[in-house]
Nucleic acid binder design. Structure first.
Lengths: 343, 343
DNA sequence: ATATGCCGTTAAATCGATTTATTGTAAAGA
DNA sequence: TCTTTACAATAAATCGATTTAACGGCATAT
């Protein structure tokens, strides 16, 4: 029982394959094909469960119904959740997803874009690493629908979805300041990406406005957590006066908590904690960690909506839209007011 | 600058496209094509960066170089990590991954298998839900390489990779028994899947052997965590005598910890905890939760190795191999000996 | 002189669809 | 009667590769 093709159907019904194709693609009316014929064909196709070969279809039409999704790391809960939501929405709209992790590696990302192109994906959803501007530009120049998310490329004009990073860290830092913390550190990964820069800026702005001295630690990313925990460990030992830490990402936050545990520091008595991104680790830490929650559903929704929009209206609108979503500061015990503790 | 095809290359070099194809597919020697011609073609192809259209290639050859990966839920850290590792290995071997989440939903999974078939994926990696036996069998009957993991289907003879679930829970339960716990509960999702059944059995075996009474809670899975925490909450309130809990999965474990926090129970004084799967939440909980760590790298490695093996040796070996890997019991404070606490 | 075999290359068939151009027939209009 | 129009369906071209079968030329064997 091998798969049957449109020719098999045509032969069996003594009709030309052209007619079959027209009927199956809803062009029966337009092509004024007889009603009984249409029904006869549809009934038979239904009966034998014929499905057109999508490869052949793609080859001819140039559309693949596949969306390429490139995240930083699919095993990061933030990206995994987004991927999950995007996957759902995409499938509901008849699109499949090919995903991959860029590791923020420029050359790997170039390769992957090549692969996607090669596979004729219809659209691209990308959390872009630095240095990928030219490739994205060329993608857009060739008329491919592209939506960036989580960050954007200042030198490339394209649609993107992100959150208000600067305000988020500014606001959260202010929250710490207002509770009486004086020596607030900011620990993050070293990165030129817009979202990371904005977060850092928000932190600095808040401290400057409050007349406090910033003290930031930027760690080079590495797959090996030990190489992240090491610098944090050193940093905390050297700067005993720090009374609050702001972690720039969930990953660095998790590593930070491990270090804090190892050092036997007490939260929030020794140290107040806030981290970007919310997930179970922060909820279940004792005491629970105050976190900046990204609106994951809204991000996924926006991304897919914008992309589907571009896919359907083949019109080459010159304008590109950028969507900036709000975050939520989930206040928990880990940044309890210093004053009230003292009192 | 649109994409060029093999015909463009052929025309430009005044050679037939057949020759180009042979050269590009390494069949130059076999077809005794002149050395200088080969070099001339290779140089030009390199120069203009020509890449054969993979759709056309797939259509003709029937191979897509794509592997379909179906996990239960890509946003679950266990599956996300596995997916990540498999992705890496696959890319290194020239394969891409299309993934999707089954949600353990049989009809959704049937649909997805259909999609994969339609896309002519070369091989399947599946964490199968119940009731999908027939579809998998038909896949295998049609000669498709299939590797199951995390669980298997007793009625289907196929390759699979999993861990020693029964021994893992047996061993961990014994660990609790030896430390003096008398009322050990087992909380898990209601499921007929082999891995869940085995885990339950291991727990029961250990208790029986120790002359203790089992008390298991099976929760119906739901996307909404509240509907998981609810039953746990009720269960714990009703059974005050419980002095240790064994969680059957990381997800149920995480929900359980939330309930325990809400109820203000102290670990391990009020309650000892062990959970299946290890991840950051358990490491960072206070005190850290004893967990059964699955050998994620080994699982991913085995899965991809077995699949690549099947892909390369097109021979239809009748035998199918099953790989069973060992887990590691990571003992932490959360199951501290009851005796020593009392002493 | 004819057949056989080897070389190096290529024309043509194929994969399975979509799309364009074309055909044949019957009814309507001149 | 002859042309036009509308209708219903199809033959053939196309997408871009791989693969099969074939071709012309030359050397060697019969």
């Amino acid at each position: 029982m091998k798969k049957l093709s449109i020719v098999d159907i045509a032969n069996h019904l003594n009709v030309s394959k052209t007619t079959i194709s027209f009927i199956l693609n809803g062009r029966a009316q337009e092509k004024r094909i007889g009603k009984e014929l249409v029904e006869r064909v549809q009934k038979f196709v239904e009966e034998v469960g014929y499905k057109p070969n999508s490869l052949a279809k793609s080859l001819r039409t140039g559309k693949s119904n596949i969306i390429g999704l490139m995240v930083e790391d699919i095993s990061n809960p933030f990206f995994a959740s987004i991927a999950r939501l995007i996957e759902d929405r995409a499938y509901k709209n008849g699109y499949k997803i090919i995903y991959c992790s860029t590791d923020n590696d420029t050359s790997k990302t170039k390769d992957l874009i090549g692969m996607f192109r090669d596979r004729h994906v219809d659209g691209y959803i990308i959390a872009p690493p630095e240095g990928i501007e030219d490739d994205i530009s060329s993608l857009i120049k060739d008329g491919m629908p592209v939506v960036l998310f989580d960050r954007h490329l200042p030198k490339v004009s394209t649609d993107f979805v992100e959150i208000d990073n600067l305000f988020s860290t500014y606001n959260a830092t202010m929250h710490l300041v207002q509770r009486g913390y004086k020596n607030i550190a900011y620990i993050t990964f070293a990165s030129q990406q817009t979202q990371m820069q904005d977060r850092m800026q928000g932190y600095k702005d808040a401290l400057k406005e409050s007349g406090l001295k910033p003290s930031a630690l930027e760690i080079t990313f590495d797959q090996n957590d030990d190489l992240i925990m090491g610098p944090i460990n050193t940093f905390l030992k050297k700067n005993k006066n720090i009374d609050a830490i702001f972690f720039g990402t969930n990953h660095v936050g998790t590593c930070g908590l491990k270090v804090i545990n190892n050092l036997g520091l007490k939260v929030p008595d020794d140290l107040a904690i806030i981290s970007f991104d919310d997930y179970d680790v922060f909820k279940l830490f004792s005491p629970p960690v105050t976190a900046i929650a990204q609106p994951i559903e809204a991000i996924a929704d926006s991304v897919i909506t914008v992309l589907l929009n571009k896919l359907n209206t083949s019109s080459q609108h010159i304008s590109s839209q950028s969507i900036v979503l709000k975050t939520e500061l989930l206040m928990r015990d880990s940044s309890k007011s210093k004053v009230s503790v003292t009192a």
